[in-house]
Amino acid sequence: MENAFQLAVKVNGADVAKTVEPRTHLIDFLRNDLGLTGSHIGCEHGVCGACTVLVNGEIVRGCLTLACQTHGAEVETVEGLTESGLIADLQTAFHQRNALQCGYCTPGMLVCATALLTEKPHATREEIREYLSGNFCRCTGYEAIVDAIETTAKNRAAGKQLAATNNAEAA
């Protein structure tokens, strides 16, 4: 391997040490080297959002990021978010609302929505639509996706409200 790069990165909470070519994209590294095929290849030029993953909590395009750029960073993919249970409510809302059809965009949508729900927990429908503007879905027409994210936001807000009330009562 020419100019092999010794990559050390935390992926879904686990330390990974791999030798990669400097030109290897993050999405190819995740899919081919680590077998994390949940993040998908759609356009390979940063427009469709199918390869969206979290790097140090920020959403990035796996096709515009080189694997070696994540040296020392923490990467999270749909597999990690699923196994941690962090987005179980979001996934349930997608499932109940049929906010996916072919499912190819869905992991990227979920990762993007995860960041949205953290950054803007009270996002309006317009704000949700704007935030998803880098994630292409050919199947749904987006309405169900917006509905599912809005439902999750409302449920989380209601849950926090309930927790705050309970804490206040306990105090």
């Binding site: 899919r31 077998g35 994390l36 095929t37 949940g38 993040s39 998908h40 290849i41 993919t77 749909v78 597999e79 699923t82 996934q91 997608f94 499932h95 109940q96 049929n98 996916l100 072919c102 499912g103 190819y104 869905t106 992991p107 979920l110």
Partner: peptide, 21 residues
């Protein structure tokens, strides 16, 4: 009725052609 097969797609466990090695 929500689609039963949608759950694996939501978990990133789909098996599209390029996922199969």
């Amino acid at each position: 009725v929500p689609r039963p097969n949608a759950k694996r797609l939501l978990a990133g466990r789909g098996q599209y052609v390029d996922d199969i090695r």
